[in-house]
Simulated assay, not measured.
Amino acid sequence: MKVESVLELEVYTQANAFDKLKHEWNDLLIRSQANTIFNTWEWHSTWWNIYRPGDLWIVICRDNSGKLIGIAPWFIDQGRVVRFIGCEDVTDYLDLIIDKKHIDIVLGHLANFLKENCAMYDHLDLCNIPAASSTLEKLPHLLQNNLFEVRTIRQDVCPIIEVPPTWEEYLQSLDKKQRHEIRRKLRRAEGVPDKIEWYTVDSSQNIQVEIERFFLLMAASDENKQLFLQNEAHKAFFRHMIPLVFEKGWLRLNFLTINDEPTAAYLNFVYDNQLLIYNSGLKIENYGHLSPGILLLVNNIQYAIDQGYKVVDFLRGNETYKYRMGGKDTEIFKLSAWCKQDG
């Protein structure tokens, strides 16, 4: 049944908003175009509880029956800028969460709301919006009709693999050189006397111990990652978020060991029939010649094929290895807007 008008807009400015919306949030997310792990109640509530970089400003829309049909998960930072909760260091995709049947009416109400309340902020800066989002397509025009100056820019790329049915078809999709390299590395690993094994964290392991093991490998792999982990808030976010998504069945945290020594790790998520390659760790001092990071990544891609997932998503960033493994660019955008005062 088409909604002719929205019963009400509600604004939440206190952290207990997440408790109040917990049982409706993910149900709406599944009905929206924004259905990614990064827009789940688990991700948003954890991010806000850890970082809290401003004043919460969640705006929700309900239809005439009281059903939740829209969430604008915003906050206003200390510079009076409206941002998405989650933006942007640890989060790859963000968007308004709107029931697909009611996108136009909800966006219209939100645009009007932003106009009516523009004294509360200086501008909007909404990051990590996927190229296919209706927000990106429709909200700029609605804001311009409300006398906003609007700008959208390409922010980053998220390379993906559209997963074929078989491993052999995947290899054939790569260029000849890369196909040869993968086969060569797999043969080399099979031919050495070293004991190479991998495992995926499950209920038989202590999840907090495995998180700390991942931190060690993550810090060892890259100076930037080491610097990132020096921020205690980042580590706190992971320590809280990972068990939550583990309980939901969305976590795929796996390790490659060589001679029982943890050497490579991938922190991935499984959500909506996709494998999301989120972060990694690598210690190559003794075993770099065996390419442990590539071996574990290949194992994850094989897993996605075996499970029949539709996409392997490498998420934000144009690192070379993503393209060598068959990644093709998708794009995310930033939407910025400034409210012009009437007259």
Rank of each mutant, 00 (worst) to 15 (best):
G288A: 00
G288T: 00
H289G: 04
H289D: 08
H289K: 08
L290Y: 00
L290H: 00
S291N: 04
S291P: 02
S291G: 05
S291H: 01
P292E: 07
P292K: 01
P292Y: 02
G293S: 02
G293F: 00
G293I: 01
G293W: 00
G293L: 00
G293K: 00
G293C: 00
I294M: 05
I294A: 04
I294R: 01
I294D: 04
L295R: 01
L295T: 05
L295Q: 06
L295Y: 03
L296H: 07
L296G: 11
L296T: 09
L296D: 12
L297K: 09
L297M: 14
L297S: 12
L297T: 12
L297E: 13
L297G: 11
V298K: 01
V298G: 07
V298H: 06
V298P: 05
V298E: 11
N299S: 15
N299M: 10
N300G: 13
N300C: 12
N300P: 04
I301W: 08
I301P: 01
I301T: 06
Q302L: 07
Q302W: 13
Q302M: 11
Y303M: 05
Y303A: 02
Y303W: 15
A304Y: 08
A304H: 06
A304T: 10
A304S: 12
I305G: 06
I305R: 02
I305D: 06
I305W: 06
D306S: 09
D306R: 06
D306I: 09
D306L: 07
D306M: 08
D306V: 08
Q307H: 13
Q307L: 08
Q307M: 13
Q307I: 07
G308Q: 03
G308A: 03
G308D: 05
G308V: 01
G308I: 02
Y309P: 02
Y309E: 06
Y309C: 01
Y309W: 08
Y309T: 07
K310I: 12
K310M: 12
K310T: 15
K310R: 11
V311N: 10
V311K: 09
V311R: 10
V312H: 09
V312W: 08
V312Q: 04
V312L: 10
V312D: 03
D313T: 12
D313W: 05
D313Y: 04
F314I: 03
F314T: 09
F314K: 03
F314V: 08
F314C: 08
L315K: 04
L315W: 09
L315Q: 05
L315M: 12
L315F: 10
L315E: 13
L315D: 09
R316W: 13
R316M: 10
R316Y: 15
R316A: 12
G317F: 15
G317A: 08
G317E: 11
N318C: 13
N318D: 15
N318F: 15
E319C: 11
E319M: 06
E319I: 09
T320M: 14
T320K: 15
T320P: 13
Y321Q: 06
K322I: 07
K322T: 12
K322E: 05
K322P: 08
Y323R: 01
Y323A: 05
Y323Q: 06
Y323V: 05
R324I: 07
R324W: 09
R324S: 11
M325L: 15
M325W: 10
M325F: 15
G326M: 01
G326L: 00
G326Q: 02
G327E: 09
G327T: 07
G327H: 07
K328I: 14
K328A: 14
